[in-house]
Amino acid sequence: MLRRYVKSIKKAVRRLQNRLFSGRKILVLGDSHCGIFEYCFDHGLLVPHLVNCEIVAGATAYGLNNDASQTGAWQKFERALRRFADFDVVVLMLGECDCSFALLKKAERLHVSAESLIDQSLAGLRRLVLKVRGDTSLPARRIILVGAILPTVDDCAATRQENVLRREIRTSQGERTRLVLSFNEKLRQLADEMQVGYFDLTAQTMNPETGLVDGRFVASADDHHLSHPASASLWARGLLNSL
C-alpha cells in the first residue's frame, strides 16, 4: 500500500514537472521490453517528459498484420492511441519476440529462413506507423522506432524459459543475434524511408569479443530481458537524443 502511494505521488510530481518545463508526452507501444521506459520514468531519468507504456506481453511486429492476433496487440494499441490522443511522441518497440521465437517457428513450418520473413514483420510496423499518422501526410506526432535487443538467453538456458515457445527453439544464441542484427538494419532502413526516428542499443550492449550481448547487461540466466538497472541510462539517453 505504501509503495503504491509513493508511486502515485511520484507520478503527480512528474506530471507537474511536465507542465512547468514544457516536456513532451510520450506514448510507448510495445512488448514487455518497453517496460524499461516505465523504469526510466519512475527513476527520474526522463524528466521533464511524461511517459505512458502500453505493454502487450508477447506482441510481435509480425502479428500487427492481423487484427485478431493471439495477443490482440493491434486492437490494444489502437485503443491506447485514442486514449492518449494528446501525447505528441509515439515510440514503437517490437521485434524481440519476432527474432527470438515467432519468426523462427514460422520459418520452420514454411521451410524457409527466418531472415526471409523479416519484411513481413516490418509490414506490420509500417502499418502501425501509418495508423499513428492517420490520413495526414505531415504527422503531428513524433514517431520513433526502437530496435530489438540482443538475445540474452544463452544456449544452455533456452530450455528453462517460462514461455513454452521459447523452450522449443533450438537456434543458437549466435544465430538469433544475427537475426536481430538483420532485423534492426532493415528497421533502420524503414525508419529512413518513412522519415521517423530510430535508435537501438546494439553497439552499447554487445561484447565485441564474442559478438553476443555483454553479460553485464543480462538480467539473469533465465530472463530474456536486459537488466533494467544496468541498461536504463542507455535507454533514457537513446530516447532523449531521438526526441
Rank of each mutant, 00 (worst) to 15 (best):
E193T: 11
D155Y: 00
I118G: 03
A140I: 10
S100T: 07
N184T: 08
V89F: 11
D98H: 02
V218T: 01
C97H: 05
R133D: 02
H225P: 08
L201P: 13
M93S: 08
P139S: 13
F199Y: 14
R82A: 14
I144N: 07
R216H: 14
D98N: 13
A123L: 13
L92W: 08
A85S: 15
G211L: 00
L138N: 15
R133C: 02
V196N: 13
I118C: 07
D214H: 12
G124Q: 11
E115R: 11
Q161Y: 00
H228R: 03
R170N: 09
E175P: 12
D135P: 10
M206K: 14
A157Y: 09
M93R: 08
Q120V: 05
M206F: 00
Q204G: 09
V129K: 14
L117H: 08
G147V: 04
A221E: 08
F183E: 04
Y198K: 14
L92I: 15
A148S: 14
F87W: 11
N184Q: 09
L181W: 12
L117A: 06
I149K: 02
T152I: 02
Q204N: 10
R160N: 03
V129Q: 13
L122S: 08
E185H: 11
F183N: 07
C99K: 02
M206C: 12
